[in-house]
């Protein structure tokens, strides 16, 4: 189990799009083949994708790594359509090349062997949670994954990851799993004290609520932030988060932060 991210150097590469698969209404799975090895890319890290052709899309768009096949040098992304850039990205056909800057940011801190972890993903924040579930190195019984969405149609199929942990779901309308938000789920509301670490990625209000409970219960909690970025590798200082040590760059000092470092 890799424990930290010295990893590979950052690089700009043209990756070959192998698959662009629609998973549901607005989530797509992109699988890209890299000309260079991907060793050292870890859960929590992200890539910055160039979206060509439309003039209004000037900057790259950051996406978390959903999965890496180190052997075959492929990288998977989960892209949720939010605006023009993400929409355009889901329309690119396999066989085309996409310029990607990677690997960016710091990974989650890996759990210790005896840990019992709760991974909570909302929206596109599911991506780094699935990768972490796969890579964290714990027995499946100690890995619990709670995924939240608006309705059943917004949940993606996670069959490939079920073997890495216990999965729980919430929907706001009750169409899959428990009705409500992730913090309403019994595994969170009633069993939180059984966990030694919490990891989360999703909308800020969700992560803030989780962070508050984790702090109260004195459980280590890491969150992955999605601040607006221009460069993604630490030169523009646009992506900052206000922390207890002042402004920190989410792209290089994050996107993963321990909640105790944030002013939440």
């Amino acid at each position: 189990m890799p424990s930290n991210t010295k990893g590979m150097n950052k690089t700009v590469q043209d990756l070959l799009l192998l698959e662009n698969q629609q998973l549901n209404n607005d989530n797509f799975l992109l699988k890209l083949k890299s000309p260079v090895h991907l060793s050292g890319i870890l859960p929590g890290q992200f890539v910055n994708v160039e979206i060509k052709s439309a003039r209004e899309i000037f900057l790259r768009r950051p996406f978390s790594v959903l999965d890496v096949d180190y052997q075959n040098q492929t990288i998977s992304l989960l892209v949720k359509i939010l605006g023009r850039g993400s929409k355009k990205l889901t329309e690119i056909t396999p066989g085309q090349k996409i310029s990607v800057v990677f690997p960016l940011g710091k990974s989650f801190t890996f759990p210790d062997p005896g840990d019992r972890v709760l991974l909570i993903g909302g929206g596109s924040g599911v991506a780094p949670m699935l990768f972490l579930a796969k890579m964290c190195g714990l027995p499946a019984d100690n890995v619990h994954v709670l995924l939240g969405a608006k309705t059943i149609n917004d949940h993606i199929n996670v069959d490939d990851y079920l073997k890495f942990g216990h999965f729980y779901y919430t929907t706001e309308d009750g169409s899959k799993g428990e009705r409500g938000f992730v913090i309403d789920h019994p595994v969170f509301k009633e069993q939180l004290s059984k966990f030694t670490r919490i990891y989360t990625c999703g909308p800020n209000p969700m992560m803030k609520a989780i962070a508050a409970s984790a702090k109260k219960a004195n459980i280590i909690c890491e969150v992955s932030l999605e601040n607006m970025m221009a460069c993604g590798f630490g030169v523009c200082l646009c992506c900052v988060e206000d922390t207890n040590e002042g402004h920190k760059c989410v792209c290089t000092e994050g996107p993963v932060f321990n909640v105790n470092d944030l002013k939440w």
């Binding site: 003039r55 209004e56 646009c238 402004h247």
Partner: peptide, 23 residues
Amino acid sequence: REGNPYPRMAETPSGMLNAVGLQ
């Protein structure tokens, strides 16, 4: 200098606005 509060960046047609404020 801590610079200006987030958000400090806006994408614009063929460019961007920044308000980093000399952090």
